[in-house]
């Protein structure tokens, strides 16, 4: 299930977490919340962000020398 989870502390700090999205849709889907609430200070991407249609897209760099 696609969910957006917003934690708001008693100090007024806001953290937004998206779950169940793949690819960049999470950023698009939660954009309205960021625009509503203020400025994005930091963003941490997770593994699902790099998935395309449910398939993990990972670039591997193999050490060829040394």
């Amino acid at each position: 299930m696609k969910q957006i989870i917003i934690d708001i502390t008693e100090e007024g700090e806001v953290k937004i977490e998206t779950r169940g999205f793949t690819g960049k849709s999470c950023v698009e889907e939660s954009r309205f919340l960021k625009e509503l609430l203020g400025k994005e200070l930091a963003r941490q991407l997770t593994a699902a962000y790099y998935q395309v249609d449910g398939k993990t897209c990972v670039k591997k760099h193999l050490p060829l020398c040394g």
């Binding site: 700090e13 953290k15 998206t18 609430l37 203020g38 994005e40 200070l41 962000y49």
Partner: peptide, 13 residues
């Protein structure tokens, strides 16, 4: 999970 953002709150409404 896809991404986590921290927001600095602004009052605009």
């Amino acid at each position: 999970m896809s991404h986590v953002s921290k927001i600095e709150l602004e009052i605009n409404d």
